[in-house]
């Protein structure tokens, strides 16, 4: 008796899933198919060139970027995985109780200290050397220095 109930449940879920999958394929297929078929076909000489302000581009779009970008990316991954763990804890907040809360607080505080360290050591500072130098060598608050009051 119980097996047939489970069987029925699984069959229902499976059927719902299959209907859903079929609907997804139908909708996407209609969208792609209609946009393929509708409208006109015109071909112009430079139509397929990438748009770069009207001039042909130099070099390809696939090239080795500087390693500079890697650092924020890897820091992001680390803190992103922290969020994953937070999600899984959030699902069982009540069941984990106070002990779980204290554990997660320790977890977060360890990572928070790491974040503060990164901020202080300058790993999150995206400015270039020249930008920092220019900011240091600025004179005064900026703006007009010899402003005189006059009556119009």
């Amino acid at each position: 008796m119980i097996e047939s109930a489970v069987d029925v449940g699984v069959n229902n879920d499976l059927r719902a899933f299959l209907i859903y999958g079929f609907a997804v394929v139908a909708v996407v297929g209609t969208m792609l198919g209609l946009s393929f078929v509708l409208g006109q076909r015109k071909n112009a000489h430079s139509k397929n060139l990438p748009f770069e302000s009207g001039i042909v581009s130099v070099g390809s779009a696939q090239f080795h970027t500087t390693i500079h970008f890697y650092l924020p990316a890897i820091l992001f991954i680390i803190f992103d995985l922290e969020v994953v763990f937070l999600f899984s804890w959030a699902l069982v907040v009540r069941e984990a109780g106070w002990a779980g809360f204290i554990e997660i607080a320790i977890f977060i505080s360890v990572l928070l200290i790491a974040l503060l360290y990164l901020a202080r050591v300058g790993a999150l500072d995206w400015r270039t050397q020249i930008q920092k130098r220019e900011l240091r060598t600025m004179v005064g608050p900026g703006g007009v220095t010899n402003r005189k009051e006059f009556k119009l």
Partner: peptide, 17 residues
């Protein structure tokens, strides 16, 4: 075209921008 660390990208901030 490239330095020892990375390759450079040449971009047109072109006549139409």
């Amino acid at each position: 075209r490239a330095s020892e660390d990375s390759e450079f990208m040449f971009l047109n901030l072109g006549p139409n921008h």
